[in-house]
Simulated assay, not measured.
Amino acid sequence: MMHHLPKVVVIGGGTGLPIILRGLRDHNVDITAIVTVADDGGSSGILRDYVNVVPPGDIRNALVALAEMPRIEKDIFQYRFRSTDQFLAGHAIGNLIISALAEMRGGIFEAVQELGMMMKIHGHIYPVANEPLTLNAAFADGRVIRGESEITAAHGQIDHVWVSDGEHHQPEAVPEVIEAIMDADQIVLGPGSLFTSILPNLMIENVGRAVCETKAEVVYICNIMTQKGETDHFTDADHVRVLNKHLGKNFVDTVLVNIQPVPNDYIDFKEWNEISQPVTHDFRTLREMGCRVISSNFLRLRDNGAFHDRDKVVEELINRLHDVHY
């Protein structure tokens, strides 16, 4: 009897996604990254506005995380022109390559598959949709704001978010995304911004439905720190409650929670100006929502910031795969 490689699907964007991908790459698993296409800030936002292409930044970082290229080639792909280079200021070379290939191939999905083969990636990278999407947020004070960067800059309490395209159609993920979710053994959400990295993927209707219907274990890696405005004073249970509310059911099976205290005097809040304070714990409510809670020291302190320890998080993900499937 042949055993297939365990299939792990990681859904997200921002800086958290490539961290988990790099850790999983060293294990004997079949990796698929499903990447948000609602980013509209920085180089990605400028290219999106002028070339009308899916924002490439999160996709670029995922490609590099799974690539088997020599270091110099990765460094070239990631190189960002200096702000004094007026014509190309702030653009990463990889963003330009992805945008060019998307134009050549008539869409981002085919472009990324081709680039993945060129870069010899370990796994699959699927943009969640083949078109740029806009993130929308309704705030507790009644405001409605469009655009991920505008929503983040508003520093307001968000009630709920949704995504839209420019044609007033219901956005849909390509079939490969849905097949990956339904065939997975484990779905990993996070770490990353709750409202602007994780939920933009899940608010595509067929993606959210697939995540609720899949037989895979859904694991949420809870953030270590709250995000200014968006998740101020949130407990770990509050994060999961927001996810469940958006999809209309308790779909998160397991939550990874850091319980190592973050030293008060270590964090540079000027440097890391989007974070507020450590996420507090409410294990009782998590269990009432049907979650298995895995609490441990997942903390890595570096550069006066608080991050997840990649190796410890990935070790737990691999442990869960073995516990559930063997």
Score class of each variant (00 low, 15 high):
residue 86 Q to E: 15
residue 87 F to D: 14
residue 89 A to H: 07
residue 92 A to E: 05
residue 92 A to S: 14
residue 94 G to E: 07
residue 94 G to P: 10
residue 97 I to W: 08
residue 99 S to I: 09
residue 100 A to D: 08
residue 100 A to M: 12
residue 100 A to T: 14
residue 101 L to R: 14
residue 101 L to N: 07
residue 102 A to G: 15
residue 104 M to S: 11
residue 105 R to Q: 14
residue 105 R to W: 12
residue 106 G to P: 09
residue 108 I to D: 12
residue 108 I to K: 14
residue 110 E to T: 13
residue 110 E to S: 15
residue 112 V to A: 12
residue 113 Q to K: 14
residue 114 E to A: 15
residue 115 L to W: 08
residue 115 L to S: 07
residue 118 M to W: 11
residue 120 K to E: 15
residue 122 H to Y: 13
residue 123 G to L: 13
residue 124 H to Q: 15
residue 130 N to V: 02
residue 131 E to Y: 11
residue 131 E to F: 09
residue 131 E to K: 13
residue 131 E to P: 03
residue 132 P to R: 07
residue 133 L to M: 05
residue 133 L to H: 01
residue 134 T to M: 06
residue 135 L to K: 02
residue 136 N to S: 10
residue 136 N to D: 10
residue 137 A to K: 07
residue 138 A to I: 01
residue 138 A to P: 00
residue 140 A to L: 03
residue 141 D to I: 07
residue 141 D to V: 04
residue 141 D to M: 07
residue 142 G to W: 05
residue 143 R to P: 01
residue 147 G to E: 00
residue 149 S to D: 05
residue 152 T to P: 00
residue 153 A to T: 00
residue 153 A to V: 00
residue 155 H to F: 09
residue 157 Q to V: 08
residue 157 Q to R: 10
residue 159 D to R: 13
residue 160 H to R: 12
residue 161 V to T: 12
residue 161 V to F: 03
residue 162 W to G: 05
residue 162 W to A: 08
residue 164 S to L: 01
residue 165 D to M: 04
residue 167 E to L: 04
residue 171 P to D: 08
residue 171 P to V: 07
residue 172 E to W: 00
residue 174 V to R: 10
residue 175 P to D: 06
residue 176 E to Y: 03
residue 178 I to L: 09
residue 179 E to A: 11
residue 180 A to H: 03
residue 180 A to F: 06
residue 182 M to H: 08
residue 183 D to W: 05
residue 186 Q to A: 07
residue 188 V to K: 01
residue 188 V to D: 00
residue 189 L to Q: 02
